[in-house]
Design a binder for these strands. Structure first.
Lengths: 243, 243
DNA sequence: TGAAGTTGTCTAGTATCATAGACAACTTGG
DNA sequence: CCAAGTTGTCTATGATACTAGACAACTTCA
């Protein structure tokens, strides 16, 4: 598998090795805390120079997926954030339960108008004014997801400023007198990160993302906000309860 | 978007450009026969050197997706094989209808035993002996798909040899007295080509494939063969009739 | 016929990719 | 402590990748 005898595919060899190792971690061949095979052994299995393996491991280490210990071995860090999808999930609680510090940051708040899709989700009419909030959420200092959130501009005037101050959707809703809310139907898909989200999530290009579309309702079932979230697939795992 | 100022992702820049153009062709932004924008214009949209664009176009041209005409422009070739999914479809007929010459080649025939899945599909019991046929199908000289086919070793003794001689599943079944058959339920998924299939299909690594699982039945509804086929996604489009 | 626009080809320079070998620094287990 | 095994670092070489500029060859259209 050298670059001389094979027609180049435009994908670097070290990237193929890194992807292979990462897949091994993702599908459980290597568990968190496990010691990976030695660099020489990896080089042999992929039929590649040891330096190429080191390049791959360095890329994984920089992303916090593995950790090298000199003289001992390379170990799997990769503790994905377990993200249960229940009707009442709060990002801060999930991250806190993982022993990490949740953070939120406003990227941009702007005025928008409801497309037919958004209006349907929010129980409003097409074309009514909305507030669009682009935000990022982190666990400790690791970006977990970027979300685009839409709210009615009439029901939540000045929502952008409130979110910038509170940095929490829960607190934003409290500010407007909403004391509790539930997550409605959730749609999960997957895709490849685009350049904008890659920069925000601190992800290399070409990485997979989990895309979650959901609408939160108050206890009476009235739609409050609808969200389009993109999660770094390598940093979370969604847990769906059966039944 | 240079390689100097951006952290390298392990994916060559020309590959990103080529993928972008190919996606544009796939989703209809550029139709077959259309003239692509000039190399300079493409270079500007991707913020890349013209030579990098040429590299991307050369890769697409080598795969037969575009064709450059000096002094005039670069045009979309990309005539995907239209592959209707009806209950009675024969590869040779489909390719012939496209004005191309169908071919088949045996890669390998071997003995196998029925897993529970295979047994269920074939209406047999788990563990009964099967014949597994790995074959490739081409239109003119272009590989279209590789298929793994399983048949009962009892009902079709020596099926591997027969296929090697006839190179056609239809003729193989005729040899055992089956005069007509129908395709049953078909499952279509997508994935990324693995190294083995990439070599067989003459595809670069990282390319998408269409995976089709189907079982053929005789006119009485009795299962005959079950197939697991991997199509080069860039060379076919499946046509499903509504109703 | 001529100008504008297109692809094709050449040279050149810098950075990255991959291979190869050697040795240092460190950890682990006997 | 020692030997074996591991990661870290260094030098070196050749092939690719990307950028840059210039000009040739060709097509199209007025």
């Amino acid at each position: 598998m050298s670059m001389q005898d094979t027609a180049s595919s435009g994908v670097a060899l070290w990237r193929l090795v890194a992807d292979g190792i990462e897949r091994g971690i993702a599908d459980g061949r290597f568990a968190a805390g496990d010691k990976l095979p030695g660099e020489m052994e990896i080089a042999e299995t992929y039929r590649v120079n040891r330096h190429t393996v080191r390049r791959a491991l360095a890329a994984l280490a920089e992303r916090g997926i593995v950790r090298a210990e000199r003289g001992s071995g390379t170990y799997v860090e990769a503790q994905k954030l377990a993200y249960p999808l229940r009707s009442r999930t709060r990002f801060s609680e999930i991250v806190g339960a993982d022993g990490r510090e949740p953070h939120g940051r406003l990227i941009e708040a702007s005025d928008d108008v409801a497309t037919r899709e958004l209006a349907r989700e929010l129980g409003l009419k097409t074309g009514v004014p909305l507030v669009r909030i682009e935000a990022i959420r982190l666990a400790d200092r690791t970006p977990i997801c970027v979300s685009t959130t839409w709210l009615s501009a009439e029901l939540f005037p000045g929502a952008g400023e409130v979110f910038a101050a509170t940095r929490s959707m829960t607190k934003l809703l409290e500010h407007y007198g909403v004391r509790d809310y539930r997550r409605g139907a959730t749609r999960i898909t997957a895709g490849i990160v685009d350049a904008t989200d890659a920069a925000r999530l601190d992800l290399p290009l070409g990485r997979p993302i989990l895309v979650v579309d959901a609408t939160d309702h108050d206890l009476g079932g009235k739609p409050l906000v609808t969200k389009h979230s993109r999660f770094a697939a390598e940093r979370v795992e969604f847990l769906v309860e059966n039944g």
